[in-house]
Each structure stands twice: as structure tokens, then as C-alpha cells.
Write a protein that binds this DNA or RNA. Structure first.
Lengths: 216, 216, 216, 216
DNA sequence: AATGAATGAGCTTTCATTCAT
DNA sequence: TATGAATGAAAGCTCATTCAT
């Protein structure tokens, strides 16, 4: 509750540095135990607060989870600004590669939210908003890539973004289920390949032939 | 009691028609409430049995979920045999399009299992086995497609299958989060497009603009 | 149930060799898990029968326990006949020394029955009967010992038996709680000492001074 | 709330008068129904608390039983100080005479613990500690009796204590199994007799016929 | 704002017992 | 006789939530 109104950013408020700290613990705990599996006591213990205090500030468990979802936003380092469109796209897609504990933890959290979203209207709204924002972001990057000549001009940004994200998402889940190095590396290569396929070759390293063609 | 005569697909439909009936209820209930959210009492009520009986046959809730996962196998109508390789591939990918309540229910079940798998070794093994079988199936279909000239010969079946499934999986989740007609139709088109891109055009309709112009 | 009427002994019947086998398993299981802790399934598994069969023959769990109590009678080797009165007494008291797994198991069974008896009228009757029989047995042995001049003539058999058994019983429980060699040896010595104190010295090995006096 | 001012005996009566109240109920309930027979709901009902509260404070049923065992310590009025050594010994042994409902209840609790101890390492440790403390107490009383000339000087306190307690324990169980006045009176007399046998006659009444005539 | 003891509904699981075969 | 699937009451325990302090 009590979302401060006057401070600027929505992610980290001046008067409530504690709040985000709590929500980060919640995100981690959900990734570790699932939404239903996470208990208020675990949150209390992790944050050093009491269950009473947690409920006092977030109303109830649902409010806490919702707040965590709103706060967790997107995968770490997913949308750092700067660089050419293609390099930004690569960086964004790199956040779908589970090569660090941090990334893996975030995706565990996400898949839990996705599962719950399938049967919870409000959660679904949150998650859909996140996806929409992400898709728009990719669209804009692609559009700018086209303007700069880094991306093939025959592409439609509005059509190309969604499959790209879907592919990345599918690969993320695959890595969640098969958490070995080979799977992670293959996912990374597949995503690089996907970028290569939409690139003109003017700014990207490769424009070669078939994706890793290796047959007779 | 009644020993089914014609089916030879499932693991043990032999003398336990009741068993599979229970597991179908479990699959549905997990899709509806999540694994943690499903209660043994719900299962008992849905099946018309008592909780004692459920536990008598499946050991405990975990055993029940595991059995359901093993039984749920794959998305409905996912791998019906017959037809040309490309049409079989289309049919398989069509099971990732959530255009019926049955499909949607199955994918709700699946995403729940995927979430739980991220933190449960045994579930992960099950799910990984399912994915591996699915990938092999797609690989074989593509290989046969290549042999028959329906699929581009420059493709490597072993490499092409995984991204295809990942794309489809990502789209399935997208449809779960945004369960509207537009999203479903777009997912369907994206998958058809993906098939078109690997087809030669001899057997399937072609839109001509392959991601990159086919090379020598 | 169905106690055969025509066969001779009450302990082992001609037509039902199985019955006593079952009850021995029950005795062992009670010693291992307690009365409440023992389950009908354990009995079924141990005997190779089904729970239905067990209940068919003994009515219910209570009947089974009662039958086991009646059958278990006394500590193993407790009342083998033969030998002089004093040696028979020593042999009987030796059954209170937990120097074998068999004895220890029996006493675990017994203490469980004793605990339950404290709040179960019928069990109490059984146990009291066993104690009475045991006391009479000791009384008779002492009386014969007096007649033969092996036991001090100033003793009253009716008064001396009970404390002797009580001492032995108390020591048995002590050994149950402290199952180490020292405690067992000390119990054995204490009982030998008790026998020595009632003996005249004519037939027993010792009539020495204070019981293990070792001070000053 | 109310911090007791004069008692300093128990472990933690400090700021938890409620705790001991609960444990007394537990002791009584175990005596009445046995450890397995006592339910958490019974405890909740008897104490006026909820099962959640009981588990909140004691962790689980096992923790509750263990706490009760630690708290129950010894038989009521067993070790009140004051008086001559022999009178203190008599008073202590009197706690093995089940002539009041309170005593009987305590011994029912105890025999239940003894039974459970036979197959529970931790319970056994508790019970053994209680027995050791009790034996030491008796040893000290006997030693002081010897110093004061009330107890025969040829006795070894370290050796005499254990049989005395074993005898008393065996009699207590006997009274549990045969809860009639005669048995109780006989137990009382047997114990008085045992005291007489170790007394010199200077301070206590003596029947003169020590088990064996005192030697030079 | 913060606490944590207290709650009680509701969960999974066990188990003696029944009964159609 | 013998079976074992089925039962359902009841157990121990968990946990989000409340509330007096």
C-alpha cells in the first residue's frame, strides 16, 4: 500500500528504500519456492521484519506478490540504453540466455508468474503489460535499425518483434528445464542466428548462409 | 475391467481404465488451480473417490502429480500419424495454437509443470524427456520432409527442430497471457510462416520471401 | 477369534499352526513400534497375509493385540522346568536380564503392554493374571527351596516372592532405558545377590557378607 | 506476566507461567491416553488454546512431549528437602506408592514414557538423565545417613541406591497393573521394610531380622 | 509503524475397518 | 477362507491473517 505520490521514479522511492528491498526478497523467494510455496514467514525472516509489518504495508500476500511483480519489471540488464540498434537488440536478447544465477533466478520467478497468470485476471494484466512494453521496445529498436540500415528494409517491425520475443521466451523455458551448459550455449547461438537473419550485414558481423548449415 | 482392444499407445491402459480417468481429472485440476492449488479433496470429489483411495493408489500427492505428468504426455492431437511430412508438421504445430478450451487447459497444465520443474529435479527429468521426445519427433518429420523434397535440403534437421519448437512454445505462453482471438490468430500465422520458410514450395504454399534469399 | 476347542494345549493348536506364527510377529512388531504404532498393514506384510484375513481371524486390532498378549505369556526361557529350586529361581530371574536381543524384544513388548494396561481394564486383567501366575510360580519354588533346605527357613514364601519379582521388574526397565553392558551386568549381579540373600548356603555358592561391600 | 518471586526450581518459569500450565495438561493427557493416544486437539481443548498456538510454541507434538518430559521431572513431592536422612528416604520412596490419584496419574505418564523410551533415543536420554539424578539423590541421602549413624555403615551407598529404586519402580508398576488397596498397602510395607533393612535402628524402628545376620 | 502470539480453517496423510469378489 | 480396493474419520501440521500492545 501507501505508494508515495510525489517522488519521481516508480521503481525506487525516496521515502521507502526498504520497500524495494523487501520486494527483491519476494522475487527471489518466489523464484525459489513458487508463489504458493513462498510463505509470509519466509518473507518476514528474509527481510528481518515481522509478518505483521509485511501485511501492514502490503495488505496481504496477494498485494505483496502483485507489488513484487510490478517491481520486478524485466529481466536484469534487459534494456540498458546506448549502442547501435543491433547491439541493443543483442543485449536485450542476451537477457534470455540463462548463463548466470541471477538470470536463472529471474526466469524462475517469471515462469511462476506466467503459470499463475494463466488463471488470475489481475496478474495476467500485469504480465501482458510487461510483454507489450517489451514488444514495443523491440519494435522501436528494429525500426531504428531499419532507418540506420542495420536491419533489412523488407522487414515489418510490427510483425518481426513478436516472433523474435516468442523464440527467446521459448528458449528461456527450455534452459529452465534443461539447465546444462550445452542447452544454454545452443540457445545463445540460436538467438545470435536470429539477429543475423534480420541484419543487413552492414553493421553486424555475419550475413552468411544457412543457420549453422553443416550437412553434406 | 474392460481391456481396451485397439489402443496400444499409453503406458498402462491395460486393466486400469479408472487410473487414466483419474489422471485426466488431475491434469484438468492442475491447469485450473495450479499444482499447489489443487487439493487432494478436489481430486477425490472430481473423481468420485475418497482421498484415501487416491493416496492408496498413487502413494501421495507428489506421486499423483508425477503420474499425471507421465500420462499427460503431449498436447492433445499433437502427434497423430498420417499425411505428408509437412502436413504432419503443421498439425503438430497447430497443437501450440490455443484455439480451443481443451488446448488452453492443457497448456495451463503444462506451464504449471514447467514452473514447478524449475525447482524439482524429478519433474524436470520428466519434462525434459517429454521435450526430447518432441524434438526428435520434429527432427524425424523434417528429415523425411527433406527426403521427399518438401523441405529445403540446405536445412539441418537436428538444428532446425529446436528453434521451431521454442518459437511455438513461446507463442503458446503468449496466448496464455493474452487469451484473445487476435493473439491466437497471429500465433497461428507466425507458425504457418515458420513452416513456409523451411518448405521448398513443392508441396506447400510459399510466400516467397524466405528470411534470406536462398543461396546457391 | 475361532479358538479351536478340541485340541489339547492352549499355546499351540494342531489345526492352526499359522495362528501362533502371526501372534509372534505381532509381539515383535509391538515391541518395535508400540501398540498404537503397529499398523495392521505391518502385520499383514510381516505375515504374508492380507489385512482382510487378519481381521477375519482376530476380529479387529484389539482382538489381535489381546490374542498376542495371551500368547506371549512370559519372558523366553523364563520357566523351564528341572534342576534344584534355587537354580530354577536363578534361571527365572535370568529372564529379567536383557543380555540378548530376544529378551530385550520381549521386554519392549512387555513395557508397552504395561503402559497400555494402566488405562485398559481388559488388558489389565490379562497382565494381572500373568503376574499372579508368575508370583505363584516363584512362591512355589521358594517353598520347595525351604523344604529342601536350600532357602532360609525364616522366610515367608508368600511375602518374599513379590519383592523379588518387583526388584527384577524394576531392573528390567532400567536396562530398557540404559541399554549398555554395564547396566545389564549390574542388574545380573543384583539379582544374583538377591538370590544369595535368601539362600542358606547349603546349595548355593555363596553366603558371604554384605552385598558387594567395598567401602572402608 | 507475573514473574514468580519465590520459586527457583523449574527451568524457565520466569516469564512463562502459561508454558508450565500447558505441560501439566500434557502430562495428565499422556497418562490418560498414552503418547500416541493423546491428540494435539485434546491438548488445545484442555489448555483453551488452539492447535496452531501449541505448535507455534513447541514446534510439533514431539517437541511438546519432550518439553513435558523435561518439565515433569520427578514424581510429585518426591524430593522435598528437610528432615533426617532416613525420613527423607522414606518420603522419597513414598512417592512410589500409588495412594493418590495424583501419584497414579504421574506413574501412568511415566510408564508411557518408559515404553516409548525403549524405541526412542532422545526420550531415552531424557529418561536416563532423570534416573541418574534420582539415583544420585538417593546415594547422597544414604551417605548422609551413614555419616549420621542412621544407616548401616557396612553399606555402600553407590551400590545400595540402584536396587532400592529398582524395587520401588517394580512395585509402582505392580500397583499400576493391580490398582487395589491391598496391592498398594503391600507395596508401602515392602518399601518400609527395605528402609528398615538398611537402617541401624538408632533412628528408625527395626525389626531385627536383617536379610543376613550382620557379620563382624 | 511495528510486533509476534494467537487463531482456525484447511491441508495432506494415515489407518482400522468393511465388503464384494 | 482369503483378498485388497475402497472408505472416511481423524490425525498432525501449516499458514495467511488478525489484533492487542
Amino acid at each position: 500500500m501507501t505508494i508515495p505520490s510525489e517522488t519521481g521514479t516508480s521503481t525506487d522511492t525516496a521515502r521507502e528504500p526498504r520497500r524495494n528491498e523487501v520486494l527483491q526478497h519476494v522475487t527471489a523467494l518466489i523464484g525459489e519456492h513458487g508463489i504458493d510455496g513462498m510463505t509470509m514467514r519466509q518473507v518476514a525472516h528474509a527481510t528481518g521484519l515481522s509478518t505483521g509489518t509485511i501485511n501492514y504495508h502490503f495488505g496481504n500476500k496477494r498485494g505483496l506478490v502483485l507489488a513484487a511483480l510490478a517491481s520486478a519489471g524485466e529481466a536484469p540488464e534487459g534494456s540498458a540504453p546506448g549502442g547501435s540498434p543491433l547491439s541493443r537488440l543483442r543485449r536485450l536478447l542476451a537477457s534470455f540466455v540463462l548463463d548466470s544465477q541471477e538470470r536463472r533466478a529471474w526466469w524462475q520467478f517469471w515462469v511462476e508468474v506466467a503459470a499463475q497468470s494463466a488463471r488470475d485476471e489481475e496478474l495476467r494484466r500485469h504480465e501482458r503489460a510487461r510483454q507489450t512494453a517489451q514488444r514495443r521496445h523491440v519494435e522501436e529498436v528494429i525500426e531504428e535499425g531499419i532507418r540506420r540500415g542495420e536491419v533489412r528494409a523488407d522487414l515489418d517491425a510490427a510483425t518481426a518483434a513478436e516472433p523474435l520475443i516468442a523464440l527467446a521466451t521459448g528458449l528461456a523455458i527450455l534452459q529452465l528445464t534443461a539447465p546444462d551448459e550445452v542447452t544454454v550455449r545452443r540457445a545463445s547461438e540460436t538467438l545470435e542466428d536470429a539477429v543475423r537473419k534480420i541484419a543487413t550485414g552492414n553493421a553486424a558481423s555475419d550475413s552468411g548462409d544457412a543457420p549453422r548449415a553443416s550437412n553434406g
